[in-house]
């Protein structure tokens, strides 16, 4: 049976460390690479909510729901700010020379690279970003 955990924090950049710590505490059995991927995806998604979703308004909250299954980890991030349009963000050109490089634009790209599935929906109960990471069998675990 799946285990579920929840943390709610104010949408401030100061909360980013709390979300990372929460994931580390509860995802004890995953390897270091998987934990980093989850922390990175959550960090980028929350940064986006804090800096864009709640821009020009009183910061509300971000709720992180964590669901641990034997073969996957699912995370639902809920916020009550402005909805974001994942399709509107351009994919960064990672082969471009430095002169042509934009400094930003990696957030959504890193989320997509770090998890196996990403869904986003704006609902009456808030904006929900759902991230799912499949767990590899132990034999193929570890960084390559």
């Amino acid at each position: 049976m799946a285990e579920t955990f929840r943390i709610t924090r104010a949408a401030y950049l100061e909360s980013l460390g709390d979300f990372r710590k929460f994931l580390k505490e509860h995802c004890k059995d995953v390897n270091a690479e998987t934990l980093y991927d989850l922390q990175l995806a959550v960090d980028e998604a929350c940064t986006n909510v804090i800096t864009h979703g709640y821009a020009d308004m009183d910061p509300g909250s971000i709720i992180l729901d964590l669901e641990l299954d034997s073969d996957s980890i699912s995370i639902t991030l809920t916020d009550f700010g402005r909805a974001f349009e994942p399709g509107a963000a351009p994919t960064p050109d990672v082969d471009a020379p430095i002169e042509e490089r934009e400094l930003g634009g990696f957030g959504l790209f890193f989320i997509q690279q770090s998890v196996d599935q990403m869904d986003y929906k704006a609902t009456e109960d808030g904006n929900k970003m759902i991230l799912r990471k499949l767990l590899k069998p132990p034999s193929s675990a570890g960084l390559h």
């Binding site: 922390q39 940064t47 490089r101 400094l103 990696f106």
Partner: peptide, 14 residues
Amino acid sequence: FMSSAGLRTLLGAV
């Protein structure tokens, strides 16, 4: 831990 915010800093610094 480093996110895209750190990367942005490094690209700008280079």
